[in-house]
Design a protein around this nucleic acid. Structure first.
Lengths: 229, 229
DNA sequence: GTCTATAACATGATAGAC
DNA sequence: GTCTATCATGTTATAGAC
């Protein structure tokens, strides 16, 4: 019954996390709720953080579906941006306190769950891909097109951080922020596309692109020449 | 000997953190090194995180001095930006692994040390002030002038995060990033100042300003003055 | 070999004696 | 103000059931 047991532990864990928060839920609580021993819980999930990562994956999958649904009714870039961001907030709305736990590990350079670690790379790439879909075939200079999804992913992390700290009722402030950001992005791209600004744009794009370069040769990518600094 | 004991605990703790990292240093190690009991250590510092906050304050003070020294030899905004950012990296260079511990708590909405919590407000305000000095009397539209220090503070947090993850020798990549950013900032301000872009600038400034609005009236500050975030 | 249960350990934090 | 127990909890080790 391995599959069933693991699923039950996971389900109970997420339920407890939602109800009482990450910190105040102990592994013993989880085991008790799932009617297994503490050791069994650890047999299925090597750490408490692993249970959070499990939530992280769930969340990503749910966002994929929600965002694509939003895209279907959307007209133009602004609406797609609004859709991809609001749908993310919808997905995590009931789990704001869990975000804190995720951020804590995501930000730690030593953690395997670090937002920049390769173990979460798959989930992150999937997340960037949905922003790529949001940009779609909106006309813009090639260099901007290449970077925009990553930049949006980064901003969306900031949005989640803001959301996690947002004390306003229904987190209305974050919702407003998203609307404002969506409204601004189209003219911003238009402005950046002005030929007159091409030189500066190139410099900015180069700067951001360099910031995104991988730190270590990832196992799937052979060591690229000329990438030490 | 209260003062002397507390100072000794603090000093030994920071030394151990530097030598062996935050995680691998236990409160018992610290107590032993400072020749006090575990309970005594907790008498002076209510938590392990409190010891990190203590480092955070030290770091801020050191950065103030280092940045002002850099300003004295600097000519123009670009050099001051370079100075304020590089001096920060200089100050934290030997404590990169400590940054991870700081971020972990700074990002957590429940933590008192959260970067957005009022208990760290004093330190953060001081940090924003040094970026205000860096901007100095550079001519630019009023609304940009008001927001720029906060925006720079935010970007500098990103820089520290990047620095903490930077595996390149001597963290040369972060250093290059700082140079690039400094080079870009002056033309960026010039561009944003174009009268032709005033409408969009106003919208952007309003967006960012709203994001910085304080969440709740802090208990230590009466609700009258319009500043805290 | 695959799963489960129990005991033990390390460490952050607390209580109460002196 | 300092100490000695003691607790709570994440994690690991060990032993057993099937």
């Amino acid at each position: 019954m391995s599959d069933e047991t693991g699923a039950r532990i996971r389900k109970k864990a997420l339920a407890l996390f939602r109800k009482r928060g990450f910190e105040r839920t102990t592994m013993r609580d989880i085991a008790r709720a799932a009617k297994v021993s503490l050791g069994a819980a650890y047999y299925y999930f090597p750490s408490k953080d692993a249970l959070v990562l499990s939530y992280y994956e769930d969340m990503q999958l749910a966002h994929d579906k929600a965002a694509r649904a939003a895209f279907r009714g959307a007209n133009g870039l602004e609406e797609r941006v609004r859709g991809v961001l609001h749908s993310k907030l919808d997905v995590v709305a009931d789990d704001r306190h869990l975000l804190g736990a995720i951020f804590r590990t995501a930000v730690d350079p030593e953690s395997a769950l670090s937002a920049f670690a390769s173990s979460t790379g798959g989930v992150r790439q999937q997340s960037v891909a949905i922003f790529d879909e949001a940009v779609g075939d909106e006309p813009m200079p090639e260099d901007i097109r290449a970077l925009l999804p990553k930049a949006m992913w980064l901003l969306h992390v900031g949005m989640l951080l803001y959301f996690a700290h947002d004390q306003s009722p229904g987190q209305i402030r974050t919702r407003h922020l998203v609307d404002d950001a969506a409204r601004v992005i189209v003219p911003l791209i238009a402005m950046a596309s002005l030929p007159m600004l091409a030189p500066m744009r190139e410099e900015l794009v180069r700067l951001v692109a360099r910031a995104f370069e991988p730190q270590v040769p990832s196992p799937s990518t052979p060591p690229a020449p000329g990438e030490s600094s």
